[in-house]
């Protein structure tokens, strides 16, 4: 199939349509606005519904309504706007509703800035809203994966009746790459026995509400749901980890640059490897079994605090030191990653 040259955000939007998404509600914010712009005309072409809402809150709550009706529904935001969606995500979880929410991460706290960032990791993976919950989080690293992950995101959301988050970032959203678009698929809005589709005389009424009010097995049900996600949905890519002395851990755009750093380091005789989490939650702890020679791990992230470090420490049960290379505002550079790995090795006597 011929490749198209597409922006990450636009490819994601087209892939959502081709995954059967027929409802979008959201509010503009750089660097994800192309998703809205694209869907504002494209959704109309396929007979779906596009709403530019008055706020992110309205966007996520309309999403909840569409999900309750059985539609494949999408919203998206970035940074400050993604924070505003957290209440709605908590409500989606509480009501067992499938939906897909995109965070095209930008840099910084508060208003921050519009450059690429990876500072929403904690918010994405810890349950950013109130209550105790997790959501599956997918992290694409290319425009092609922005496409391929949309179908997966909707399938996982429906498999678990649970919102799925996609952690993109400004670099992947704004850049263009060649992409093979997936085929068009349709979603049957009447395919669920739980969706609210109107109630005629004689129908047994359905109700979407917090499962806490309806399920006697609420606690066990949720524990099992998350345990099943953790057991079955860990996704990752490993690159040259078998003999690596230091294994880098990076996702999204940082993983591409880390892979280049691995190649450059190996050419210098330095054995680096790479684990690239594709799901940020559940964190791919299984990937760490295949690093038999690793004496240290080092995350590469576009943030200040090294938000993924704790997850790596848990994955290796603190048997190895875990370092961190952070860049802020700019993308990481392979040379800097290698220097940081060398100083970690020196510090740890490797």
């Amino acid at each position: 199939m011929a490749k198209e040259l597409m922006k990450g955000n636009e490819a994601l939007a087209e892939a959502a349509i081709r995954a059967g998404c027929r409802f979008y509600s959201g509010y503009p914010i750089t660097p994800q606005t192309e998703i809205l712009e694209y869907l504002s005309w494209r959704m109309d072409e396929v007979g779906g519904t596009f709403v530019q809402t008055e706020s992110e809150l309205a966007g996520v709550n309309m999403l909840l309504g569409a999900a309750a009706a059985g539609a494949r529904a999408l919203t998206s935001s970035a940074g400050p706007g993604f924070s505003l969606k957290q209440e709605g995500i908590s409500y989606l979880v509480a009501a067992d509703l499938p939906a897909v929410i995109i965070d095209v991460m930008r840099i910084g706290t508060g208003l921050g800035d519009i450059a690429q960032g990876q500072g929403d990791y904690w918010q994405l993976t810890r349950g950013g809203g109130h209550g105790d919950y997790h959501t599956i989080v997918l992290a694409p690293a290319s425009v092609q994966e922005n496409c391929d992950m949309m179908q997966v995101a909707f399938q996982l959301a429906e498999k678990y009746r649970h919102p799925v988050l996609v952690a993109s970032d400004a670099a992947i959203g704004q850049m263009m790459e060649g992409v093979e678009l997936p085929p068009m698929t349709e979603h049957d809005i009447d395919s669920y026995d739980w969706a609210v589709r109107g109630c005629l005389p004689g129908d047994s009424p359905r109700k979407i509400q917090n499962t806490y009010y309806t399920r006697p097995d609420y606690v066990e049900y949720l524990r099992e749901k998350y345990a099943s996600m953790e057991a079955n949905e860990q996704r990752w890519e490993s690159y040259m980890t078998e003999d690596a002395d230091v294994v880098l851990v990076a996702y999204g755009i940082s993983s591409r640059i880390s892979r280049e750093a691995v190649d450059m380091a190996r050419a210098q005789g330095l054995k680096l490897g790479l684990i690239r989490p594709i799901t940020l939650w559940p964190f791919p702890v299984k990937a760490f079994d295949a690093c038999p020679k690793a004496k240290a791990f080092m995350t590469v992230e576009i943030n200040i605090l090294g938000q993924m470090v704790d997850d790596v420490k848990l994955a290796v049960s603190s048997r190895c030191p875990v370092g961190f290379h952070g860049s802020f505002f700019s993308l990481p550079e392979p040379e800097e990653i290698i220097e940081q790995a060398k100083s970690l090795m020196e510090k740890e006597g490797i």
Binding site: Q174, M175, E177, R256
Partner: peptide, 28 residues
């Protein structure tokens, strides 16, 4: 890959983009 300077660009302001061409995978 094609990557624009983006954000508050306007007619008459400055703009730039970076293009990379390769036989293999492109990182950054």
């Amino acid at each position: 890959t094609w990557y624009p300077s983006y954000g508050s660009e306007m007619r008459g302001g400055t703009a730039n983009c970076t293009v990379k061409i390769s036989d293999g995978k492109i990182a950054s």
